[in-house]
Amino acid sequence: MKDMLTIVVRLTISCLLAASVMGVCFIFTSNAKKHNEHVKEQQVMYELLGYKNGAKIPESLALHEVYRYVISSSEKQSIGYLVPKASGKEAGYDFVNIDLNGALLENKAVALSETEVLETETRNKAVQQAVGAGYTANFADRIIIVTDNGKRIAYLIGGKFQGFKTFVNVMLAVDPNFSLLGMEILEHEEDPGLGAEIEQDYFKNQFKGKPFEALKTINVVKAPIPDDYLKALTGKLSEADILKFREQYKDKDIYALTGATISSKAVSNGVKGIVLKFAYRINVLDKVLREQQLAVSF
């Protein structure tokens, strides 16, 4: 009996010690983790926009984040967008609820600051409040509208699709005509040496400069990449030559990776799906914003 008691006491003490060590470590690292993730994300975004490591980012460039929610009740569904208001920094957000046919249902102001909106839980709560009881709002995705001196120059879209093994997480940059400016693979679990090559320059740079019309019907071909095109893709040629090759191949299909046709196809189909859906949605949103004459920041 006494034995039992000492075991229990000692085990409790060791558990408490372990818990305090882990708790302290969690408190210290969680903020750093969030911060680093944010920095990394910003870096990826600017790189996609053409500002490589260390390049100076002009003051006039601004990123506006729009959050999309799927609103559903027992009977019907609609799409809600959380868009930043135009005037000033602390202007808050507008919540625009659009029905499935693209007509405005309602429009509400949501008081959120720019830092609050980054916190997933605070944002979800505010949106839930805006849609009211009886409806549930599920966060769907986030798009970033890039403006230069108030003029739209690009969109950044995140997306996730099924790869060969598990999900592939990407970020795309498209210009206002929905031509691809670039693609970055954020996360994947494909096989090293085979599907994992999707993150290599010679694969992902093939998507650079594909116009919207070509994207609609994009496919993959099982053929080796021509030598000079390969050089252009890996950046071994001069800037002018790279642009020439990009122009020459812009309407062509994607060359599949050797031994990883399924991964290549998954990426090209995934990118196509993301861009097509985005193009439809942004047109609907723009139309509503124009009709309602809502002043938004982008």
Binding site: V70, I79, L100, K277, Y280, R281, V284
Partner: peptide, 13 residues
């Protein structure tokens, strides 16, 4: 007479 969409994307017909 049909409206068809994927479950997560109700706005994309």
């Amino acid at each position: 007479n049909y409206t068809i969409y994927e479950e997560p994307d109700p706005d994309i017909r």
